[in-house]
């Protein structure tokens, strides 16, 4: 019995070890273009089967990090391993295990939908039968059956993105990289992409995404690295970030500056902290209802007064003093 118990423990331990070994590890990862430090000595670890997000404004260095991971740009310095392989040593092996959805769509417009998948399968040396089977599965999974023989040009934005994700999955990668997967999509298409992402996470795929949308990061990511100007400012789960960096609720006030200042003066000892922006005032608090009521009672004319849950956007604002979408 003792033996069985120990072997069970060993099993549990090895399971735990295996699952806590990062699938991607970056140490002092840097990329310089001329004098610009696009990525500046960042460290991160990504665990298998999780969704890891890089959140930051345009130019933060998100795409550059992705491009180093899938070996289309060399590191300037530092160390980066993917699936145990050094990206600077074994490019093809690293790329074989990664599916990539680039920020700007890189579909092959000279080919129709099904050939985009079949031709891509050849780059991974899939046999014809494997390719056809896999392509059919993916076309079904991403609901592109009706467009099978159509030219890629005729697809809507959402369909193109789905086809790109399908194409990235042709070789059953363990890691899927999505560089701004929902930028430029309408809300319906975004939700479709997100639901497919959730299904993929459930299937055990490690997802790596970049975004400058808070709701996207909150929806999908287990962990987020907030990036700004080549640095990772902070890294945590979305909820922990909100909890640790800002208060749970925000009361947001728009109106002329004098009115805003007057309100701030009156409530300043009732709030956790505030952000005075050019066009609005944000008051952070653990409980929005009494504060909201109190401001209403003051009868100071403002354009809008609203209370909401605080979001990653607020975290970003607090951390960098700047708004995220520029």
């Amino acid at each position: 019995m003792g033996n069985e118990f120990f072997s069970f423990c060993e099993f549990g331990l090895s399971w735990f070890m295996e699952n806590s070994t990062p699938i991607i590890t970056a140490q002092k990862l840097s990329k310089t273009y001329g004098s610009l430090k696009a990525v500046n000595a960042i460290n991160f670890e990504i665990l298998p089967g999780t969704c890891y997000g890089f959140l930051g404004p345009n130019g933060a260095g998100k795409t550059t990090v992705m491009r180093m991971i899938y070996c289309v740009t060399p590191l300037t310095s530092g160390r980066l391993t993917v699936n145990g392989e050094n990206v600077m040593e074994n490019m093809s092996a690293v790329k074989r295990g990664i599916g990539v959805v680039t920020q700007d769509d890189s579909l092959d417009y000279d080919l129709n939908v099904i050939n985009n998948l079949l031709v891509y399968a050849r780059y991974y040396d899939l046999t014809r039968e494997q390719a056809v089977r896999r392509a059919d599965e993916l076309i079904e999974f991403f609901q592109l059956e009706e467009k099978r023989g159509e030219n890629v040009r005729t697809l809507s934005g959402g369909m193109k993105r789905r086809l790109q994700i399908a194409r990235a999955l042709i070789n059953k990668p363990s890691i899927l990289i999505l560089d701004e997967p929902s930028t430029g999509l309408d809300p319906q298409a975004r939700h479709h992409v997100w639901s497919k992402c959730h299904e993929l996470i459930e299937q055990g795929v490690t997802l790596l995404l970049t975004t400058h949308y808070m709701d996207e990061a909150e929806q999908l990511c287990d962990k987020i690295a907030v990036m700004d100007r080549g640095h990772i400012i902070t890294e945590a789960s979305p909820w922990d970030l909100i909890k640790s960096e800002v208060s749970p609720y925000v009361v947001e006030i728009r109106g002329d500056e004098a009115a805003r200042n007057k309100i701030l003066k009156a409530v300043v000892d009732q709030i956790d902290f505030h952000e005075a922006l050019s066009d609005r005032l944000l008051l952070y608090t653990a409980d929005a209802i009494p504060l909201h009521a109190h401001i209403q009672d003051m009868d100071i004319p403002v354009k809008t007064l609203l209370s909401r849950r605080s979001s990653l956007e607020d975290v970003f604002l607090k951390l960098t003093g700047r708004e995220l979408i520029d």
């Binding site: 790329k95 990664i98 890189s106 891509y120 780059y123 991974y124």
Partner: peptide
């Protein structure tokens, strides 16, 4: 222009 190579180079093709 067509970014065909961006697509190809993210596969094992170098």
């Amino acid at each position: 222009f067509d970014r065909i190579y961006d697509g190809i180079l993210s596969t094992p093709i170098n």
